[in-house]
Structure formats: C-alpha cells, structure tokens
Write a protein that binds this DNA or RNA. Structure first.
Length: 265
DNA sequence: ATGCCCGTCCGTGACGGA
C-alpha cells in the first residue's frame, strides 16, 4: 500500500497537477491540506474518474483538509476532540477551522492534518498552534487505544531539527523551529508514534517546502515541515519513504512537495 | 535548467502563507 501527504495550496488551482500526480504516483491513500474550498465544492468527480473516493473538510478561503482513497474510506471523523478555534483580532468568538480529518482506508487509520502556522512567537496564533497540537495529541492517544495500523500525516509547520531548514541562522526568533513547537512533536510521539523518515531524492535533507520567492527551490533553500508519524504496526511495515521533489518543479505547482510512504500492507 | 510569489475574495488591494 502506498500512502502520501501533500499540501496543495488550493485544490482548484492545483487540480491539473493533482490529477497528473495521482495518475503517475498511484497512491492508494492521499492526505491533502490547504484545499481553500468548501467541502461540497471539492472536485470529487475528477478524482473519482481516477478511482478515488473523497472525504473533505473545508469551509472556503483558508485551510481545508481531505483524504482521498482507492482502497475504501470509512469511519470519517471531521475535526479533533476538543479542537480549539482561532479568535481573530477584533472578533467576538473563536472560529473553528477545518484542519484535521480522519478516515480508515484499507485497514489503515489515517489523519490528514494542517497545523496552524503560528505566524510569530508573540502572536496569539502561536499559542493557538500549541493548543491545537495538544488537541491532536489527545485525539491520537484516544484512537491509539484501538488496534493499528495508524498514521498522522500532514503539514505540521514545524521543522523537527535545525538540519530541517536550509539555514538555521535565518530563523532566529521565528516560528517553526522553537523549543515549544518541537516539544509538542515530542509529546505527540509520546502517545506511541514514531516519525517515518523520508529519503531525499536529491541533496542531503528531504525538504518538503520551498517559498515561491527568491529562487528558493532552485537554490534548494527549503524546509522539512510536512511529516508522517506512525504507530509501531505502521512503521514496521514501511518499505520506502521519500519526498517527491519533482512535483515542485516548473510553473503552476504548490509550494510544497508530496511525501510518499510505501507499506508492506 | 528546477529560475526571481501565489491564491483568494462582492476582489482591483489586503491578507495569509513560513
């Protein structure tokens, strides 16, 4: 079985690239993030022609996650238990955001997640990011009580180590590399998960994101922030894992590349 | 060549992304 995760930065803007990639890579399960579309406006017919069912969780302009599967799609769960929302400046209330969706596909339980960015360590969005990661840990811990295999895949907006950004000197005081964010990843792992380490197809580190600006991709000035965590049953079945950086080449691409995991399942 | 930001919205700039 092949499972994968990809932040597509608008599923409609990326639809031709998405369909091409599905046809070429033939994942059995694909977790998507940053749909930027209402769930009922997801281009389900187009992916259905390639044999995929879809469960989407989205509400318009921002965020949005989905699971695509050609090996069954059951027990869909939209949102985390006690998931926090974000209270924008001047807003009266917290607003829930579509950032997590879980589904069982071909016997594998997957969660597609889009962790809040954090924006700046002094911004309320950073505390929201940490609260959101706590909720993710709680939901993972709850679901791990039942039998695996189990995986959480997505855009974590955290570089696990200093080596996971092109130049740590450029990230002084920035989000994505702070102790508290990394501690949240360690706590997630503490529920009984391990990271599936992807191999780079080129260069030393398997970056998954390169900013559109400043020739970041040709210069390989990237970040490894799209991550896959699995329970022991899943990680024991991993036969290969890599970042498909070719998907970042050329015009009309997402700024993220897919992470692909092959399983003997 | 992998090449100098992109996507969205009652939208013609502002915001978010990281």
């Amino acid at each position: 079985m092949r499972i994968a995760t990809w932040n597509v930065n608008s599923v409609n803007a990326r639809l031709p690239k998405l369909l091409d990639w599905l046809s070429a890579a033939e994942p059995d399960v694909l977790c998507l993030q940053e749909l930027k579309v209402d769930a009922d406006a997801f281009p389900a017919e187009q992916v259905a022609e390639l044999g995929y069912e879809v469960a989407a969780h989205g509400n318009g302009r921002w965020n949005g996650v989905a699971v695509l599967s050609r090996v069954g799609l059951d027990d869909v769960r939209r949102g985390l238990a006690d998931e926090p929302g974000f209270q924008a400046e001047g807003a009266m209330f917290e607003a829930a955001e579509p950032r997590a969706i879980g589904a069982t596909c071909g016997g594998v339980r997957v969660w597609s997640v889009y962790v809040p960015n954090g924006r700046d360590v002094d911004h309320p969005h950073y505390e929201y990011k940490l609260r959101w990661l706590s909720a993710l840990r709680e939901t993972a811990a709850e679901e791990l009580k039942t039998a695996g295999p189990f995986a959480v895949l997505g855009d974590f907006n955290i570089a696990p180590t200093d080596a996971d950004v092109w130049d740590i000197g450029q990230f002084d005081g920035a989000t994505h590399v702070t102790e508290r964010e990394r501690a949240a990843l360690t706590e997630l792992v503490g529920t009984g998960l391990a990271e599936v380490a992807p191999r780079p197809l080129k260069y030393e580190v398997a970056f998954t994101y390169w900013d559109y600006r400043a020739l970041r991709f040709p210069k390989n000035q990237g970040m490894r922030i799209d991550l896959v965590y699995g329970d022991p049953q899943l990680t024991a079945a991993v036969s290969d894992a890599y970042v498909d950086r070719d998907a970042r080449k050329g015009k009309g691409t997402s700024d993220h590349a897919p992470v692909v995991v092959d399983l003997d399942l």
